[in-house]
Protein backbone atom coordinates (compact mmCIF):
# COMPACT_ATOMS: atom_id res chain seq x y z
CA UNK A 1 0.00 0.00 0.00
CA UNK A 2 1.40 3.36 -0.92
CA UNK A 3 1.58 6.34 1.37
CA UNK A 4 -1.22 8.24 -0.38
CA UNK A 5 -3.63 5.33 -0.10
CA UNK A 6 -2.74 4.82 3.55
CA UNK A 7 -3.31 8.48 4.27
CA UNK A 8 -6.58 8.44 2.40
CA UNK A 9 -7.85 5.39 4.32
CA UNK A 10 -6.67 6.88 7.60
CA UNK A 11 -8.64 10.02 6.83
CA UNK A 12 -11.80 7.99 6.45
CA UNK A 13 -11.34 6.34 9.81
CA UNK A 14 -10.49 9.67 11.39
CA UNK A 15 -13.66 11.15 9.93
CA UNK A 16 -15.69 8.43 11.59
CA UNK A 17 -14.14 9.01 15.01
CA UNK A 18 -14.42 12.77 14.73
CA UNK A 19 -18.10 12.60 13.92
CA UNK A 20 -19.24 9.81 16.20
CA UNK A 21 -16.96 9.13 19.14
CA UNK A 22 -16.57 10.86 22.46
CA UNK A 23 -13.75 8.91 24.09
CA UNK A 24 -11.04 11.10 22.55
CA UNK A 25 -12.21 14.23 24.34
CA UNK A 26 -11.22 13.65 27.95
CA UNK A 27 -10.37 17.00 29.40
CA UNK A 28 -6.68 16.59 30.16
CA UNK A 29 -3.84 15.95 27.74
CA UNK A 30 -2.40 13.00 29.62
CA UNK A 31 -5.87 11.46 29.72
CA UNK A 32 -6.24 11.80 25.99
CA UNK A 33 -2.90 10.09 25.44
CA UNK A 34 -4.05 7.06 27.37
CA UNK A 35 -7.41 6.97 25.62
CA UNK A 36 -5.82 7.13 22.17
CA UNK A 37 -3.17 4.60 23.06
CA UNK A 38 -5.48 2.04 24.63
CA UNK A 39 -8.57 2.32 22.45
CA UNK A 40 -6.82 2.68 19.11
CA UNK A 41 -4.28 0.05 20.15
CA UNK A 42 -7.00 -2.44 20.94
CA UNK A 43 -8.89 -1.49 17.78
CA UNK A 44 -5.81 -2.27 15.72
CA UNK A 45 -5.42 -5.61 17.51
CA UNK A 46 -9.05 -6.48 16.87
CA UNK A 47 -8.86 -5.49 13.21
CA UNK A 48 -5.74 -7.58 12.80
CA UNK A 49 -7.25 -10.57 14.55
CA UNK A 50 -4.94 -10.33 17.53
CA UNK A 51 -5.74 -10.73 21.20
CA UNK A 52 -6.97 -7.41 22.52
CA UNK A 53 -7.57 -8.29 26.16
CA UNK A 54 -4.88 -7.86 28.75
CA UNK A 55 -6.69 -8.74 31.94
CA UNK A 56 -10.18 -8.76 33.39
CA UNK A 57 -9.89 -5.39 35.10
CA UNK A 58 -12.69 -2.90 34.65
CA UNK A 59 -10.25 -0.56 32.95
CA UNK A 60 -9.19 -3.09 30.35
CA UNK A 61 -12.77 -4.12 29.73
CA UNK A 62 -13.67 -0.51 29.23
CA UNK A 63 -11.02 0.14 26.57
CA UNK A 64 -11.93 -3.14 24.93
CA UNK A 65 -15.66 -2.19 24.81
CA UNK A 66 -14.85 1.10 23.14
CA UNK A 67 -12.60 -0.71 20.67
CA UNK A 68 -15.15 -3.44 19.93
CA UNK A 69 -17.82 -0.84 19.22
CA UNK A 70 -15.46 1.22 17.11
CA UNK A 71 -14.28 -1.73 15.06
CA UNK A 72 -17.82 -2.87 14.47
CA UNK A 73 -18.69 0.58 13.17
CA UNK A 74 -15.51 0.74 11.06
CA UNK A 75 -16.50 -2.49 9.39
CA UNK A 76 -20.01 -1.21 8.80
CA UNK A 77 -18.82 2.01 7.25
CA UNK A 78 -15.69 0.86 5.45
CA UNK A 79 -16.09 -2.46 3.63
CA UNK A 80 -12.55 -2.12 2.29
CA UNK A 81 -11.30 -3.14 5.74
CA UNK A 82 -12.50 -6.71 5.08
CA UNK A 83 -10.12 -7.19 2.18
CA UNK A 84 -7.20 -5.16 3.44
CA UNK A 85 -4.06 -6.97 4.46
CA UNK A 86 -3.22 -7.04 8.13
CA UNK A 87 0.07 -5.19 7.80
CA UNK A 88 -1.71 -2.50 5.82
CA UNK A 89 -4.35 -2.20 8.50
CA UNK A 90 -1.56 -1.88 11.05
CA UNK A 91 -0.01 0.89 8.98
CA UNK A 92 -3.28 2.79 8.64
CA UNK A 93 -4.01 2.41 12.33
CA UNK A 94 -0.57 3.70 13.23
CA UNK A 95 -1.17 6.76 11.06
CA UNK A 96 -4.55 7.19 12.69
CA UNK A 97 -3.03 7.08 16.16
CA UNK A 98 -0.46 9.70 15.18
CA UNK A 99 -3.11 11.89 13.66
CA UNK A 100 -5.41 11.62 16.68
CA UNK A 101 -2.52 12.39 19.00
CA UNK A 102 -1.77 15.48 16.98
CA UNK A 103 -5.34 16.76 16.66
CA UNK A 104 -6.41 16.00 20.18
CA UNK A 105 -3.19 16.67 22.11
CA UNK A 106 -0.06 18.04 20.48
CA UNK A 107 -1.75 20.36 18.02
CA UNK A 108 -4.81 21.03 20.13
CA UNK A 109 -5.67 24.62 20.92
CA UNK A 110 -7.61 23.57 24.00
CA UNK A 111 -5.97 25.44 26.85
CA UNK A 112 -7.55 23.23 29.47
CA UNK A 113 -5.50 20.19 28.48
CA UNK A 114 -2.51 21.27 30.51
CA UNK A 115 -4.42 21.86 33.73
CA UNK A 116 -3.26 19.59 36.46
CA UNK A 117 -6.36 18.95 38.51
CA UNK A 118 -9.78 17.97 37.36
Amino acid sequence: MDETTAQEKMKQLEWYITKHCLWQYNSRGWDREIQNERILGKSKQLLCGENAREDDSNADRYYWSEAMTLVEAFKRYFPWLKTMKKEDIATVMQLLKEKMDYTMIKGSLNQELIKEKY
Binding site: L22, N26, D31, S57, N58, A59, Y62, E66
Partner: peptide
Protein backbone atom coordinates in the same frame (compact mmCIF):
# COMPACT_ATOMS: atom_id res chain seq x y z
CA UNK B 1 -16.32 10.50 36.73
CA UNK B 2 -12.69 11.43 36.33
CA UNK B 3 -12.13 11.40 40.06
CA UNK B 4 -13.99 8.12 40.54
CA UNK B 5 -11.68 6.66 37.93
CA UNK B 6 -8.58 7.93 39.66
CA UNK B 7 -9.66 7.09 43.22
CA UNK B 8 -11.74 3.94 42.75
CA UNK B 9 -10.67 2.65 39.33
CA UNK B 10 -14.16 2.92 37.89
CA UNK B 11 -13.87 3.57 34.14
CA UNK B 12 -15.63 6.52 32.53
CA UNK B 13 -17.63 5.74 29.41
CA UNK B 14 -19.08 8.70 27.51
CA UNK B 15 -22.32 7.98 25.68
CA UNK B 16 -25.02 9.67 23.62
Amino acid sequence: CDELRVRYGIPRMDID
